[in-house]
Nucleic acid binder design. Structure first.
Length: 426
RNA sequence: GGGUGGGUGGCAGAGUGGUUGAAUGCUCUGGUCUUGAAAACCAGCGAGCGCGCAAGCGUUCCGGGGGUUCGAAUCCCUCCCCACCCGCCA
C-alpha cells in the first residue's frame, strides 16, 4: 500500500523503484484510477449536500405544520435518492479498483539496494571463516542421517508424501536443541520477547504481511479458509495490526520458534533430496516494530543477531545484499545469510533479514502516536534467527567425521544433555 | 453442534429516526499553581475526501454490504467477527 498524496508528489521515485523491480512504471495507472475516483466523490458530495439541505428544510416545514411546503420540497428531491445511490455504488467500485491495484504492487526499494536481475547479481557483504576443510570427501546431510538411522525420508513419504522427513533419536534432539539454543539467544541475549502465537491465521493477516493476494499458491489453506503460516513473521507482525500504539511502547521486539508450512509449488524438481526444502520446517523468527528513524539501524542490528548464531556454532557463512530483481515483494531491503554446506560444496540460504518500511503497516493499519500526538504508520522488520532445518544441515555437514559420526558444537552440548558426538548406538 | 448477548472515537462507555461527529470518564497536549514534581483547576484533543493562499466551508465514516425513509449510529435483511452459557473433546 502506498500513500496517494505521497505518490502524486513523488512519481519519479515511485516509478524508479517499480522499474528496478522489473514491472515498469505504475504511477500513471494509479493516478488515473484515483482521479476518476475523486471526480466521482466530488460530484457525489454535491448531490449529498443538496439532499441534506432539503431534508433539513423538510424537517423544519413539518415542525411548523406547513404540510404544503413540505410536499413541495419532497417533490423536488424525489429523484435525488437514486442519483446518490448510483454515485455511492460507483465510488465503491472505483475505490475497490484502486485498492486492488495497490495491493498487487511490491514495496519500494531502499536506495542502497544493488541493481540486478536475479541472484547472480546479489552482492556479497561479508564472510565468516573459510569453508571447512576435510581430509576425506564430505557427505551430504541425508547420507549421514540415513546411515545413522536417525533420518528417514521413506517412512515420511509413506504417510505424508514428498518434502517431509522423520527424525529420530539424537537427530530429533539436535533439531530441538538448535531451536532452543537460538530462541534463548534472541530472547535472553538480544532482548526479544518470546511469543507463542497461532500457526493458523485468517486471510486478512496474510494480506497484512504481503503473502496475499499475490502468493496464495505458495501457502496451504485449510478447508475453513484459514492459512497455515509460511513463516511466523505473519503471526508476529500481525500482533500489532489495527492498533494505535504509543511511541513510548516502541520498539516492540518479538521472537518465536514455530513450525512453518510452504507448498513449494513453484520449485518442483528443485532440492528434492534431503531436508533443505520441506513443506514443514521450524524456524526462529525475529520481528521488530519501530519508528522510521530507527528502522535502518534496527535492520543492521537484526542481521548481527542472526549472524551471532553462526559465530557461536562456528559455522562458515557469507552475508549477501539481495539485488533489486531477487528481492521479495514485501521488502525494501533484504540481507541473506548463507551457510557453508560441505556436502553440496556451496553456500545455501539459512537466514533472511528484511526491512519492510511502512508497507506492511499500511496493509495492517498498524500505527503509533508520535511525540506530537500525530498518528503515523509503524515500521516493520523481520528476520530469521535462523531456520532450524537448514541450520541443522550445516551443523551435520560441517561437523561430520570420516566414520559418519557428527560432533556436537560446544555451544549446543548443554542443550543435548552434554552429548558430544552423534553416532550409531551400539 | 445448540442457545443468548454484543460490535460506537487512542481506551472505557452513553446514545433507539431529525443541529449527535457522537454525552461522560480516562489517556494525551497546552496553560494556571509549585523550588521541582504530583494533585487540583482551566482549555484543547478522531479520520478520509473535495474546494480555498489561508481562516474556513462542504461531505463521508458508529464491524462489512444491502434495504426502508425526505432524513439512519438508531428500524429491517444479510455476511463477518467477538463474548458468555450448554453439549462434545485435548
Amino acid at each position: 500500500m502506498f500513500d496517494m498524496k505521497w505518490l502524486r508528489a513523488n512519481t519519479e521515485i515511485f516509478d524508479n523503484s517499480m522499474v528496478r523491480r522489473g514491472i515498469g512504471p505504475q504511477s500513471t495507472m494509479l493516478i488515473e484510477l484515483d482521479d476518476t475516483r475523486r471526480a466521482t466523490i466530488s460530484s457525489l458530495n454535491d448531490l449529498q449536500e443538496m439532499r441534506n439541505k432539503s431534508s433539513k428544510q423538510i424537517g423544519q416545514a413539518k415542525a411548523q405544520k406547513d404540510e404544503e411546503k413540505a410536499q413541495q420540497l419532497l417533490a423536488e428531491v424525489a429523484d435525488l435518492r437514486s442519483k446518490v445511490q448510483a454515485g455511492e455504488e460507483q465510488e465503491r467500485q472505483q475505490t475497490q479498483a484502486l485498492n486492488d491495484a495497490m495491493l498487487a504492487l511490491p514495496n519500494l526499494l531502499a536506495d542502497d539496494v544493488p541493481d540486478g536481475e536475479d541472484e547472480e547479481d546479489n552482492v556479497e557483504r561479508s564472510k565468516f571463516m573459510e569453508p571447512t576443510q576435510f581430509a576425506f570427501k564430505p557427505k551430504e546431510h541425508y547420507e549421514l542421517g540415513e546411515a545413522l538411522g536417525m533420518m528417514d525420508f521413506e517412512v515420511s513419504a509413506r504417510m505424508s508424501g514428498s518434502r517431509f522427513v522423520v527424525l529420530k533419536g539424537q537427530l530429533a534432539l539436535l533439531e530441538r536443541a538448535l531451536g532452543n539454543f537460538m530462541l534463548n539467544l534472541q530472547t535472553i541475549n538480544h532482548g526479544f520477547t518470546e511469543v507463542s502465537a497461532p500457526l493458523l491465521v485468517r486471510s486478512e493477516a496474510m494480506v497484512g504481511t504481503g503473502q496475499l493476494p499475490k502468493f496464495a499458491e505458495e501457502a496451504f489453506q485449510t478447508t475453513d479458509g484459514n492459512w497455515l503460516i509460511p513463516t511466523s513473521e505473519v503471526s508476529l507482525t500481525n500482533l500489532v495490526r489495527e492498533q494505535v500504539l504509543s511511541c513510548k511502547d516502541l520498539p516492540l521486539r518479538f521472537a518465536s520458534l514455530s513450525y512453518c508450512f510452504r507448498s513449494e509449488s513453484g520449485s518442483a524438481g528443485k532440492d528434492t533430496r534431503g531436508m533443505l526444502r520441506q513443506h514443514q520446517f521450524s524456524k526462529v523468527e525475529m520481528v521488530t516494530i519501530t519508528t522510521p528513524d530507527k528502522a535502518d539501524k534496527t535492520h543492521q542490528d537484526m542481521l548481527g543477531f542472526a549472524e551471532e548464531v553462526f559465530h557461536r556454532l562456528k559455522i562458515p557463512y557469507r552475508t549477501i545484499a539481495l539485488c533489486s530483481g531477487d528481492m521479495g515483494a514485501s521488502m525494501q531491503r533484504t540481507y541473506d545469510i548463507e551457510a557453508w554446506m560441505p556436502g553440496q560444496n556451496t553456500y545455501r540460504e539459512v537466514s533472511s533479514v528484511s526491512k519492510a518500511g511502512d508497507w506492511q503497516a499500511r496493509r495492517m493499519n498498524a500505527r503509533y502516536r508520535d511525540e506530537n500526538g500525530d498518528v503515523q504508520f509503524v515500521q516493520t522488520l523481520n528476520g530469521s534467527g535462523v531456520a532450524v532445518g537448514r541450520l541443522m544441515i550445516a551443523v551435520m555437514e560441517n561437523y561430520q567425521q570420516e566414520d559418519g559420526s557428527i560432533c556436537v558444537p560446544e555451544a549446543l552440548q548443554r542443550y543435548m544433555g552434554d552429548l558430544q558426538v552423534i553416532k550409531v548406538a551400539k
